[in-house]
Nucleic acid binder design. Structure first.
Length: 573
RNA sequence: GCCGGUAUAGCGUAGUGGUAGCGCAGCGGUUUUGUAAACCGCUGGUCGGGGGUUCGAAUCCCUCUGCCGGCUCCA
């Protein structure tokens, strides 16, 4: 039998549970699966587990591995399993979940018994080396109304060397963390006094604007019209839209002269207000209204994360108001746009596509839902993207496609999305109408969609994706000119003016530093091109080009450098 | 919001009950330099806020806030 990583991780989880039970008698165990990069196990015990407990636990795990006992699989009857699990209340509840008639398998290693589907390693020494990483709270069955258990996370290596290599990789990944690079590269800061709100510094805002301009050009090419709607809108509107009932806890509410207003958490009502501002014909559909709308959501404090999850952010939002027949083509059109955009950033294998289907709590009849889900699926397939289905994870008003990107530490973030909405334009909500070919009034369907998701989150992903070394077109400082002595500063200014006239973002390092230090500073700042301008260069009318990652390219004429830069910009390098 | 951890200068950190240190950055000066760090000097901290224990608290306790790791939720 081939021993897989998953088997070793899952088996390590069992031994971790055994170790915790050995060291802390009376521990209640829940479940402990393998994950993409290790495993976890959930426990309920009096003692608060802490990293200080890890050395003792790891020692015990190592001891159990060294015993090299076999993992013995058995199939047992329900009462027999229940008898063996006596006193383990979570295990017994899990046992009760298993449908009648299904085979119940168990694994036993030494004196440790567990109900488990497996598969496992044959004997414990095959696990390798185990390291515990962190302990965190986790609701039983993932339900916030349940008791919070203690979850221990661990990683597994075939041997100590592989484990060490994995830990080293994690350390490297941490260096890409956007929270760290954001400060190091002077892109933005977050003020503890105003949690979840971003202060964009000149360099970060340059990236932001470059990304927004890029997206704007794509939208206009794709038949969108850009609009802008108020940041603060009245309670009455939010009541009609349904947000007051369903989303109030996440809204910042304010007041003026006894009237209540809320800062918008979403842009959709604004778009529909524009649609409704005059009589519309079926000939106006699909109407694609794009908005870089700034939204404020009062997210729970524990969910905030750098610039990925904040309370103030801008979506590259758009609302497509169309007929039901137009849904499929509009979704397909969106998928093509998204794919085209993501390709420019090299997102491919770290992209997950999910189709979230009808939840239990939903509006609308089932046939409509099925039609809508099929339309999303077909459009997704038509653009050549594979998706996985998340049953019951759709919004109450419609199904959605979610496009999730992975950050430096392997955490998923939903970025792009397209959601079908029959509800908001309906008579019960904002009552949007158009005149059909039959001269009668009809309610349109609305698609909420974003390609990047939020600019803030997407830039966070980009910082980690590029490890701060942005491609030329996004780099806040594209070229830095390094005069070797004060004498070349006028020459440097001449070059700077010539490049700036072409729209490039250029700075001069006129400090008293030596060339070596200027190069180091430019390298640390991850500037794509450093142009050395010394006496020799000035005499020859050239610049000595140093490219990020490639090093010294030697001297070249300014027009040759410009041609090179144009090439990079064209290729989004 | 929940569970756990944590908080020392802009950033990285030392300091376990007895006068808050170091590196980098910043600022001033000297140096005018050819491909990853010149030299000298200076500034900067009511040790996250509040309360308590103590003759004395960065250090021990309580509490609030932020942050970190997860969970729930989400762009």
């Amino acid at each position: 039998m081939e021993i897989t990583d998953e088997m070793r991780r899952h088996s390590a989880a069992h031994l971790t549970a055994r170790a915790v039970c050995n060291l802390f008698p009376g521990t209640q165990t829940d479940i402990g699966p393998a994950t993409d990069d290790g495993f976890y196990y959930d426990f309920d015990l009096e003692h608060r587990l802490a990293p200080e407990d890890f050395p003792a636990l790891e020692k015990e795990i190592a001891r159990l591995i060294a015993l090299d006992e076999p993992f013995v699989r058995a199939e047992m009857s329900r009462p027999d399993v229940a008898a063996r699990l006596a006193g383990q209340k979570y295990k017994l509840e899990r046992l009760a979940d298993i449908p009648e008639g299904e085979t119940i398998s168990t694994y036993e290693v030494g004196d440790y018994f567990e109900m488990c589907r497996g598969p496992h390693v044959e004997h414990s020494a095959q696990i390798g080396a185990v390291k515990l990483m962190k302990v965190a709270g986790s609701y039983y069955r993932g339900d916030e109304n349940n008791k919070m258990l203690q979850r221990v996370y661990g990683i597994v290596g075939k041997d100590q060397a592989e484990l060490d290599a994995y830990v080293a990789r994690l350390e490297e990944a941490k260096k890409r963390d956007h929270r760290r690079l954001g400060v190091e590269l002077d892109l933005f800061h977050l003020d503890p006094e105003d949690p979840g709100q971003i202060f964009w510094h000149p360099k970060g805002w340059t990236i932001y604007v470059a990304l927004q301009d890029y997206m704007r050009a794509k939208l206009i090419k794709d038949g969108y019209q850009e609009v802008n709607t108020p940041a603060i809108m009245p309670r009455s509107l939010w009541e009609r839209s349904g947000h007051w009932d369903h989303y109030k806890a996440n809204m910042f509410v304010t007041e003026s002269e006894k009237r209540v207003f809320a800062v918008k958490p979403m842009n959709c009502p604004g778009a529909l207000e524009i649609f409704k501002s005059r009589m519309r014909s079926y000939k106006d559909l699909p109407l694609r209204l794009a908005e870089f709308g700034h939204c404020a959501r009062n997210e729970p404090s524990g969910t905030l994360h750098g610039i990925m999850r904040v309370r103030g952010f801008v979506q590259d939002d758009a609302h497509i108001i169309c007929t039901e027949e137009q849904i499929e083509e509009e979704v397909a059109k969106f998928c093509r746009l998204l794919k085209d955009v993501y390709k420019d950033f090299g997102f491919d294998k770290n992209l997950l596509v999910k189709l979230s289907t009808m939840p239990e709590d939903h509006v609308g009849d089932e046939a409509t839902w099925q039609h809508a889900e099929a339309a999303l699926a077909a459009a997704c397939k038509a653009s050549g993207m594979d998706y996985e289905i998340q049953p019951g994870e759709g919004a109450f008003y419609g199904p959605k496609l979610e496009f999730t990107l992975i950050d430096a530490l392997g955490r998923p973030w939903q970025c792009g999305t397209i959601q079908l909405d029959y509800q908001l334009p309906s008579a019960e909500r904002l009552n949007a109408e158009y005149i059909g070919p039959d001269s009668q009034k009809h309610h349109p369907v609305m698609l909420h969609r974003a390609v990047l998701g939020s600019l803030e989150r997407f830039i966070g992903i980009l910082i980690e994706h590029y490890a701060g070394s942005f491609p030329l077109w996004l780099s806040p400082e594209q070229v830095r000119i390094l005069p070797i002595t004060d004498k070349q500063v006028p020459y440097a200014q001449k070059i700077r003016d010539a490049l700036a006239a072409r729209g490039l973002r250029v700075e001069i390092d006129a400090s008293a530093d030596k060339l070596g230090a200027k190069i180091r500073n430019g390298t640390v700042a991850k500037v794509p091109y450093l142009l050395v301008a010394g006496g020799r260069d000035e005499a020859a009318g050239v610049v000595s080009v140093r490219q990020r990652g490639a090093g010294d390219l030697g001297a070249m004429k300014l027009e040759d450098f410009i041609a090179k830069v144009d090439e990079d910009l064209k290729n989004k390098q």
